[in-house]
């Protein structure tokens, strides 16, 4: 098993929280992992990405080769499209639909949706909307992770356990909320995956 995952978003959107949950679950399953992060200047509201690689054999490169990523998980619609050159022709684009507009020339959102719809395999999800229904928009990233969960090579149970470990300090209510967010994301993806 080998999964190459690109996480994409805007500095400050917390894409590393998604990486932390996948990473914890992968380690729990005894898998190898490499995760390249962005620190420094780019974090100031610029586009950021992380290369997350998991597999049952030792991983060589910290960076994924172009055209070889199995999944692009994006917490922002334009940022997901930015990494299409990384995505393999059989890969999945899992993206949030809510734009993060911190630049004056942000494109027409419908044009971005049109481009997303052109991607062979994709899921587009209103993560904030779903998270708000569950109680807080803060769980949006976990909703997106839920939408990607079928394609990670990691059992759903392992992801749930990782959420329990990571959010344990914040109390049972927060753990429960995030597990519900994970499920809601998965349920949405089951009904709305475009092949």
């Amino acid at each position: 098993m080998k999964k190459d995952i690109i996480l994409a978003g805007v500095g400050g959107q917390g894409i590393l929280s998604i990486a932390a949950i996948i990473g914890s679950a992968a380690l729990d399953m005894g898998l190898y992992l490499k995760q390249s992060e962005v620190h420094g200047m780019a974090q100031r509201g610029g586009d950021v990405s992380s290369n997350l690689r998991i597999g049952d054999k030792e991983i060589a490169s910290d960076l994924i080769a172009k055209g070889k990523a199995d999944i692009v998980i994006s917490v922002e619609p334009m940022e997901g499209l930015r990494y299409l050159p990384m995505l393999s022709s059989e890969g999945w684009l899992i993206t949030n639909s809510t734009p993060f507009k911190n630049i004056p020339n942000y494109p027409e959102i419908d044009d971005l949706y049109t481009e997303i719809a052109k991607v062979h395999r994709h899921v587009m999800i209103d993560a904030e909307g779903i998270a708000k229904e569950l109680g807080t928009a803060k769980a949006a990233n976990v909703v997106i992770l839920g939408a990607a969960s079928a394609h990670l090579g990691i059992s759903f149970e392992s992801l749930e356990n990782a959420i329990r470990r990571i959010f344990a300090k914040k109390g049972d209510a927060v753990v429960e909320l995030n597990i519900n967010a994970l499920k809601a994301g998965r349920d949405f993806a089951e009904k709305n995956s475009h092949l």
């Binding site: 805007v10 500095g11 200047m41 780019a42 974090q43 100031r44 509201g45 610029g46 586009d47 080769a65 172009k66 055209g67 070889k68 990523a69 334009m78 940022e79 499209l81 930015r82 299409l84 050159p85 990384m86 995505l87 393999s88 022709s89 890969g91 911190n102 630049i103 020339n105 942000y106 494109p107 027409e108 044009d111 971005l112 481009e115 991607v119």
Partner: peptide
Amino acid sequence: TIGADVPGNVVSRPPA
């Protein structure tokens, strides 16, 4: 190897 092109309407997002 390379995947699909970046769509033309994707613009750069510099740090700010």
